[in-house]
Amino acid sequence: MYVLPDLPYSEDALAPFVSADTLRTHHGKHHKTYVDKTNELAAKAGLADRPLEDVVRQASRTGDKTLFNNAAQAWNHAFFWRSMRAPGGPQPNGELTRAIAESFDGLEGLKEAFVKEGVGHFASGWVWIVMTSDGLQVISTHDADDTLVREGLFPLLVCDLWEHAYYLDYKNDRKAFLERWFDNVANWDFAAAQLSASTGEGEGFRYPASE
């Protein structure tokens, strides 16, 4: 049985950039619903004992869209919680700083690309910072689509573009949400750990083991 992972911070830890009300609704209702539905569907598909990453990939291969949408959304949200930390945390450093400089000429260049991609993305989805064979890139995916089913991409950070991620705090101003998210709550320590894992130094993020 897949679990709803606890938030890695308190519900009010990201305020005022992401409110406690948004986190409470987003985590306790939206994410929980995806996890509950995944448990139901994975059991019917005979996949309940598999890591969630395997379930997402298998559902994609077999064309089981309902299972894919719920399992991928469960995974994406867990990765999203880890992509944030309380305001005032450390900025990029070390290898991550060098990778950002090589691909975007610095953090401001990365922010510009990230916000532009997120604002320009039509309807629901996710905006990602990923490592590729050509260095860092910013991409977006639609609906539940994620990096698990895309060859050659290793995710470092993600921000949710579905309206429930920001509408209570920002109404329809997605641009302001993305700018404030990037400047204040993006978890660069997590991104650095993911970057190391992309080169085989440590293990990258995995969804918590099922019970």
Rank of each mutant, 00 (worst) to 15 (best):
W188A: 13
V158S: 14
Y34F: 15
D183M: 06
D145Y: 00
R174D: 03
K175H: 07
M1L: 12
L148K: 04
G152Q: 06
P208C: 01
A176R: 15
L153A: 03
D12K: 11
H26L: 06
E102T: 11
N187H: 05
V185T: 05
L52V: 08
N184T: 04
L156C: 07
W188K: 03
G89D: 05
F205D: 06
W126E: 10
F122R: 03
L195T: 08
H31V: 01
L195N: 06
P90N: 09
G28N: 08
R150M: 14
K37S: 12
D189N: 11
P90E: 13
A74L: 05
Y167D: 05
P90I: 09
T38R: 06
W128Q: 04
W126S: 08
A192L: 03
W162S: 11
H164P: 09
A48R: 00
A209L: 14
W181F: 15
I100D: 06
F80S: 11
K65T: 12
N172W: 04
L110N: 04
S198W: 09
L148N: 00
R174F: 07
D54G: 00
K65C: 02
P16D: 12
D145V: 06
L148V: 09
W126P: 12
P155A: 11
N69F: 05
A113D: 14
E53M: 09
E40K: 14
L168N: 05
K116P: 00
F177D: 03
V185S: 03
A101H: 08
N70I: 00
L157H: 04
D183G: 07
D146M: 12
A165F: 10
D64Q: 06
V18N: 05
L41C: 08
R61Q: 15
V35F: 01
S19E: 01
H142V: 14
S60L: 00
Y166N: 08
E203D: 15
V3I: 13
F68V: 12
L107W: 03
V130W: 00
L148E: 03
R98D: 13
A48C: 01
G200E: 09
W75I: 07
L148G: 01
E117G: 09
S83M: 09
P5R: 07
Y9T: 03
R61P: 03
K44L: 10
L161K: 05
V18R: 07
Q194Y: 04
Y167N: 03
K65E: 14
P155Q: 09
E102D: 15
T147W: 02
T147E: 10
Q91I: 10
A13L: 14
N76F: 00
L161V: 13
G109W: 05
K65G: 12
D134A: 15
V130I: 11
F122W: 10
L47C: 11
T141P: 12
P87A: 02
D49I: 00
G63Q: 13
H30P: 02
L4A: 10
L14V: 08
E11G: 00
L195H: 04
E163A: 08
D189W: 00
Q73I: 02
N172R: 12
A165S: 13
D105N: 15
F177K: 03
M84V: 13
L161N: 10
E11P: 02
V119I: 11
A86P: 06
F154I: 10
L14G: 00
H121A: 10
G109V: 14
Y2D: 07
Y207W: 09
L107T: 08
L52I: 09
W81G: 02
R180N: 14
Q194L: 05
